[in-house]
Amino acid sequence: MAKELLKGNEALAEAALRGGCTFYSGYPITPQTEVMEYLSDRMPEIGRTFIQAESEIAAISQVMGAAWTGEKALTSSSGPGVSLKQEGISYIAHNNFPCVILNVCRWGNGLGSLDSAQTDYNRETRGGGQGDYRCIVMAPASIQEGVDMMYDAYDVAEEYHNPVVILTEAMLGQMIEGVNLPEFKPVKKLGLIRPYGRAGKDYMEKYAVHYNRMVDELERWESIQTEDADYVLVAFGMPSRVCTDVVSILRGKGEKVGLIRPINLWPFPFKAFEGIRPKAFITVETNETGQLVDDVAIAAKKSGAGDVPVYCLATHHECADEEAVLDYFEKVKSGSVKERY
């Protein structure tokens, strides 16, 4: 059967329902609004709860309450809206409540702009709110991959009792691709959740076990032709698609180039870097200052690859095209750009 053509935002919204989502609360913001718009119609149709909250803070608070009682809760927003939700996310993580947060990322600090970007990498992978916790962060590179992630997100969130953030990009939310939608999962609710409790020795011991399990079990990535690579590109989401093309182009010219594509951004896929010995790593990111590059530098060191230089091509508010990556690659080879680490 032919795949269904679906817009990214709508496809992920439907996938959430098929994966078991029973409760949504959110507040509109471009480029995410189609998620809400779709759910506002679809959730009442199948007997699930949709709320357009009065603010982002109300939305995340409602998600926390719903998650506490065992509902499979979802909220979605973009950069500025997810910032407003951080206090709630911190409470949710502290209390080991599972839920899913979708960030359709747009460029920017402050209000930012409507451009597609990856500027929220650091916030999502470092917990984002007050305290010391992490969200499991997944970053799809295609609408189908986003659908598959969203479909399984409640299983992951409930298995690890932790919030899951799905970090997409404006372009991925607005574009259309062919998608196979999975069947509806039977909804099994957890029931009332018992939080780990207030901070203290007991809490810290429980959280350490919880944290280590996520780190040990949730690395996910795709490696493309890295085994013999002299240069390894590292990119996630939309730039990773461009880098896939660049690897083919450069391999066609006899250059030994590969790509590591982190699929889960947290925990970071350190294992992807084990056993490879390139001359350099090059990150390609849609932001200003480079964020992924910091994790790649740690990964390079941790892998035992020695003092391998790590470069960063940060292309501001526009996703890099093949020419930009090829041009930067030549500069790395000729030594005319400086490594970040």
Partner: peptide
Amino acid sequence: SFMAAEKDLETTWMPAYG
């Protein structure tokens, strides 16, 4: 894009955004 999908070909449709 619809024509391609009907023929089981991979396709992307990207609108000018913004």
